[in-house]
């Protein structure tokens, strides 16, 4: 690595990832879906990871949490550190001890992420019984408090209900209560608002923000929605075809993108201030897993690509400014358009 992306000082870093690589078993053999991803997250920081579906953003986080199916996946990393734990050295059992109290997840589909056969209260309470050794009675009481905290009305009654009796937004609140139960140091929110209505989306984002302020945890926010990124993130990593292609603080990334892909994403954002503009999109499709183009992985879709982009080996992630990295050969010569 010529330059690690903005890595905060080791003491306040809750999660540190260096050169993470994830291979999955496909019909045609092993294929790399996450290739050399490195980043760190500071306490209290919200790190956004953006990219199209299939860019490897979810796999990155599932791999960190040890949730990729063993046997069909290979996860390697130079460093994978969560607080004082070296995750590469932990057994699956030890990983399970960490999931919940140290790192918790919120998933995209609140409809299917809760078990239909158990009450909502029980699904929250079991985390507390597992990790904090609470009794049934204590854990039930705590579950009701958590439901109250995440804004579920009449929590004592609702705790006894099943997921199908909840709306999408309310279910996502339940998921947040589950994630919050053991007061984790890192919360990974994998597209938590994608499946929700816009108004509900805003409420859930607000709730996540409040909770983060209260507890000072690190949040990794995975999304493909730059509007959401602008709303909640402090710092952003842009992923494309399994690699980080750009990383910067939010304001800088939007104002001064250094990778053509990020420029394309910004241009593709629908704008309220100029509704007459037709919607812009990046031409082409991301490459398929196991079928990566030579050179820069973005070159087939890039308007600035030259022969060097097509033939040279994949460009390295380079530092262009303090805390700003990009994976583009031509970044010194290009002036890319940001978001006004």
């Amino acid at each position: 690595m010529t330059a690690a992306p903005t890595t905060p000082t080791a003491t306040d870093t809750t999660l540190e990832v260096e050169n993470l690589k994830v291979d999955v078993l496909t019909e045609k053999g092993w294929a790399t879906v996450v290739d050399g991803v490195s980043f760190g997250v500071a306490r209290g920081e919200t790190l956004g990871i953006v990219g199209e579906s299939g860019s490897g953003k979810s796999v990155t986080c599932l791999a960190i949490a040890g949730l990729m199916p063993p046997g069909q996946t290979r996860v390697t990393a130079d460093t994978l550190r969560l607080l004082e734990h070296d995750l590469t050295a932990l057994s699956p059992k030890e990983m399970a001890d960490i999931r919940g109290p140290k790192i918790a997840m919120i998933f995209q589909e609140p409809m299917s992420s809760l078990n239909p056969a158990f009450t909502v209260g029980d699904q929250i309470a079991e985390v507390l019984r597992r990790h904090e050794g609470l009794s049934r009675k204590e854990s039930r009481k705590r579950a009701i408090e958590l439901l109250d905290r995440v804004g579920v009305p009449s929590p004592a009654r609702r705790a006894l209900q099943y997921p199908f009796e909840f709306s999408g937004g309310m279910r996502q609140r339940v998921m947040i209560a589950i994630a919050l139960a053991c007061n984790p140091d890192v919360i990974v929110a994998d597209e938590p608002t994608t499946a929700l209505d816009v108004t509900v989306q805003a409420q859930i984002l607000e709730l996540l923000r409040e909770i983060q302020e209260e507890h000072g945890m690190s949040v990794i926010f995975i999304t493909h929605d730059l509007g959401v990124v602008a709303d909640v993130c402090d710092r952003v990593l842009v992923m494309y075809a399994g690699q980080i292609v750009e990383g910067a603080d939010l304001a800088e990334l939007f104002a001064d993108p250094q990778h053509p892909y990020m420029e394309g994403l910004l241009a593709a954002m629908p704008r309220m201030d100029n509704p007459s503009d037709a919607l812009v999109s990046i031409p082409g499709h991301p490459p398929r897993v196991g079928d990566m183009p030579d050179g820069c992985r973005f070159h087939p879709r890039c308007g600035y690509a030259t022969d060097a982009c097509r033939t040279d080996s994949s460009p390295l992630l380079e530092r262009v400014a303090p805390g700003h990295t990009t994976r583009c050969l031509r970044h010194p010569e290009l002036t890319l358009r940001g978001s006004p």
Binding site: A65, L67, A96, I98, S113, F118, E126
Partner: peptide
């Protein structure tokens, strides 16, 4: 997905299979 949620909660394999 809810099985993944159960694993993400850190439940032990026995609990994930036996209960969820």
């Amino acid at each position: 997905d809810y099985v993944r949620t159960a694993r993400a909660k850190g439940l032990r394999g026995r609990m994930v299979i036996g209960k969820h």
